[in-house]
């Protein structure tokens, strides 16, 4: 039955909301041009390099088959530590960021006086960037007598030496990520604004309480945006670089050696661009599979107003 309606639906749309190759390619033309001019070559070259021992300074390398992959999987202990750190980071920071972002967006989606100021404040940690002053600042905040331990002290808890202990260092970066929830928050805010008001009005007439309104209207209407934020947070979580680069440099004991940081180090500190490219492509495969999985799942939980089947 489902299949029948689907094909029927498709045919209907084909005829009246038509397939149009020329118009489609005109619209995505700018992207295609930029892709083939500026992105296609570097990406393909990096794929080729991953099968070589290309060294940046020598500007040459030999084809070595799968040696780079064998090396990273079986011979490089730091590689697995970087995998470990990255997975831990993704597993904790992605849900934390999304929950914070959604909660705060809900809180700030009002007409109250001063809400603009609050939004700016909540967005502030996300725009302070990655300069060296910021590195000093994060260290100060998580330092022995910095803001975090000072606050814990007020609550009667003796804080650890956050950045110095192998058990806690990665948590500072996870907390830092949760703190910088500004970009998914803004996207949620924009999404909330797009929910038609009349839906709430009619729900209120039906006597729905606020929790019901949230579950029946806000959440379903927001699923395309939640889906987007989930995918993008997943991708950027795996590619996390700046925080570790400026604050911990992978220490202590490689517990914060994020994958992208290790790739960068192999590429530009040891000049082993071949090996670095191989590592990057392995990560790309992993992210691509995960993303595809989330896309597959989306038909079960993402609600589109314009459901015309991608």
């Amino acid at each position: 039955m489902a299949a029948a309606t689907l094909t029927k639906g498709k045919r209907r749309r084909k005829s009246n909301f038509g397939q149009d190759n020329l118009v489609g390619y005109l619209f995505i033309g700018p992207w295609l041009i930029a892709f083939f001019l500026f992105t296609f070559i570097p990406i393909s070259v990096s794929l080729l390099l991953s099968f070589t021992d290309y060294n940046v300074l020598a500007n040459s390398g030999d084809f070595i088959g799968l040696d780079n992959f064998q090396r990273m999987f079986f011979e490089d202990r730091r590689y697995w530590r970087s995998v470990n750190a990255t997975v831990k980071y993704v597993v904790f920071s992605v849900p934390l960021r999304l929950v914070f972002a959604l909660a705060v967006a809900m809180l700030l989606n009002t007409y109250r006086r001063g809400v603009g100021v609050y939004r700016a404040a909540f967005y502030a940690p996300s725009i302070i960037g990655g300069s060296i002053a910021v590195a000093v600042m994060w260290r100060e905040i998580f330092g022995n007598d910095g803001l975090v331990n000072f606050t814990l002290n007020l609550l009667g808890i003796e804080g650890p030496n956050w950045l110095g202990r192998p058990e806690t260092a990665i948590w500072t970066l996870i907390i830092l990520a949760a703190w910088q929830f500004g970009s998914p928050m803004l996207i949620f805010l924009a999404g909330l604004k797009n929910i038609p008001k009349h839906l709430y009005e009619s729900a209120e007439i039906d006597g729905a309480n606020s929790l019901q309104r949230f579950l029946r209207i806000t959440l379903p209407m927001l699923t395309p945006i939640i889906f987007f934020n989930l995918i993008m947070q997943l991708i950027s979580g795996f590619m996390v670089f700046t925080q570790a680069f400026i604050v911990t440099q992978g220490r202590p004991l490689d517990t914060t050696l994020f994958y992208a940081l290790y790739v960068y180090r192999r590429a530009f500190e040891q000049n082993e661009m071949g090996y670095a490219s191989a590592m990057a492509w392995v990560m790309l495969m992993v992210i691509a599979v995960l993303t595809a999985f989330v896309f597959r799942s989306s038909s079960y939980w993402v609600h589109y107003e314009a459901d015309e089947g991608t």
Binding site: I28, W31, L32, F35, F38, T39, I41, P42, I43, V45, S46, L49, V56, I231, I235, F238, M239, F241, A260, V263, Y264, A267, F268, M273, A276, S277, A280, W281, M283, L284, I287, A288, T291, T310
Partner: peptide
């Protein structure tokens, strides 16, 4: 397909594209 290709371009760190670029 083009949409998938576009997403994949987000998954490769800039660092390994810098030199060919």
């Amino acid at each position: 397909i083009w949409f998938a290709v576009m997403l994949v371009t987000l998954m490769l760190p800039t660092q390994v594209q810098i030199i060919p670029q």
